[in-house]
Amino acid sequence: MNKERHVLLVYPHPDDESFGKAGSVALYTQAGTPVTLICGTLGELGRNMGKPTFANRETLPYIRKKELEEACRVLGIDDLRLLGLRDKTVEFEDPEWVADKIEAVIRDVKPSLLMTYYPKHGVHPDHDALSHAAVIAVKRLPKEERPVIYGSAVTHDARAVLGPPDVTYDVSSVLDTKLAAMRAHKSQFEAMFAQMEEQMAKSPEARQQVEANMSKEYFWIYRIDD
């Protein structure tokens, strides 16, 4: 992996930084690269309330904030910026106004790499709205100051539309850290982990398959053409 000066993560929900990306983040922090995380919302409208249910609609944001802080601790992210936007509403805000907030952080930490969802391939409207705003923010910089953008494309047709990923990280050396970061999001991932463990218990081959899938993380470089 390339040596980076500073990595900036731009995601709308607590757990976005861990799901499908935590291994790469851990590789960067273990290499001594400072990582800043911009988290747009606190996932106030998530429908997972823990299993068994331990959160409610009003306590969920407090719980998810704590879970996010724990995931950051696990991953070695020591700079967390919360934007205070609201779950599911990001796409209805003025994109330039959201970009202002991201631009301020970019000018502050001067990242060499910015990780976000790949525009239009984030599935969740908040993912696409925040990646769009991140691109606007990067475009405002002089070309030579722009960070490289790694996008996570999670649509079913990502490979058909974008081609194979530009960057594939083998994160098997930090798999435990990745799983610990995901587990920190207890309210969101308990149900998923139960399913995964059930899958792994089926046979040694099934376990290997799950671990192999978890050990690879994929990114597409988003190129700004101007």
């Binding site: 429908r47 997972n48 309330m49 299993k51 068994p52 249910t53 609609r57 149900a191």
Partner: peptide, 8 residues
């Protein structure tokens, strides 16, 4: 909540 404890 549904059978998985998710808010509906």
């Amino acid at each position: 909540h549904d059978e998985e404890g998710r808010l509906a």
